[in-house]
Design a binder for these strands. Structure first.
Ligand code: ZN
Ligand code: ZN
Ligand code: ZN
Ligand code: ZN
Lengths: 145, 145
DNA sequence: CGGTGAAATGTTATGACATAACGCTATCGA
DNA sequence: TCGATAGCGTTATGTCATAACATTTCACCG
């Protein structure tokens, strides 16, 4: 059981519920991104039955920066950078078309440039999506270059 | 019939077919991004009946840089920057959650930083998605700031 | 002219992703 | 204890995208 003993959970939003914890663990153990339905399939034996149960958990996880949605894939990964866990950090993702693996990184300079553009245009920036598609070094090295 | 008189269409790949032209004009006249099904609805009276007709046209338009897919919206806009029309250019998009309008721009420095990251990691970069979400100056100015 | 191959088209069916709407339950502070 | 808030479970539905197959169009060439 998650979050049961040892903490008084007095209004700690960082405390995960059962479903949230199940979904996060599933993402954690996955090699690459999973769709909500992939996650659902892996959690049927734990009692989950409907997509909404997964989507609701994902919403919270993404909100807290513990997971990310990859827009260009309509799929989710667990966060690989503690810096995101406050929720605000802007991350970038390199997604390999070959093996499906995702590399999360942060480039402050890129973020700063985009923020500057927004500033200049009076655009109230709330969220930024940066996704690179291509083939990772491993995939380039091994097959049909 | 589109593209019939006045041009000899001798193997110009930049030459749009009837469906491609219809879809592009629809995007052109729209205020903001349209989903493929939005486009389909607007083109029923022109004889289009199935989503695939629209998706196929969109594929070609995106390929040629005449339109862009906004991943975070699952929708499409016509390109606002002739620099894209060779297909290779990396554009960024600021999408307003208030009015839905989209502002396309290019930041060479951002592109260069991302390319440098890819270079360093041996990642074979093929395509880059950059999307900013927030509220445009107009929407911030007018309501509940 | 008539054949040929590539690309585009039209159509039906299906798959994949996501949310609306409802009612119930657990928890916590006043 | 009561009311508020957040989470949960379920059904139904909505939205986005592609598979598969038959047909049409048209530049090209013998
Ligand atoms: Zn992260
Ligand atoms: Zn790879
Ligand atoms: Zn463009
Ligand atoms: Zn706006």
């Amino acid at each position: 059981m998650a979050h049961s003993h040892d903490d008084h959970h007095h209004e700690r939003p960082r405390d995960l519920t059962r479903n949230q914890d199940l979904v996060l663990q599933t993402l954690n153990h996955a090699e690459g991104p999973l769709s909500a339905y992939d996650i659902l399939d892996k959690l049927r034996e734990d009692g989950l039955r409907a997509p909404l149960q997964v989507y609701r958990a994902l919403d919270k996880l993404v909100e807290q920066g513990l997971a990310h949605r990859l827009e260009s894939l309509s799929a989710f990964v667990c966060c690989a950078d503690a810096g995101c866990h406050d929720g605000a950090r802007t991350a970038a993702f390199a997604i390999c078309s070959g093996c499906g693996r995702v590399d999360e990184f942060a480039d402050p300079e890129v973020v700063e440039r985009l923020a500057a553009w927004a500033q200049e245009k009076g655009f109230g920036l709330e969220r930024t999506t940066i996704e690179l598609r291509g083939r990772c070094a491993r995939c380039l090295g091994s097959s049909t270059p």
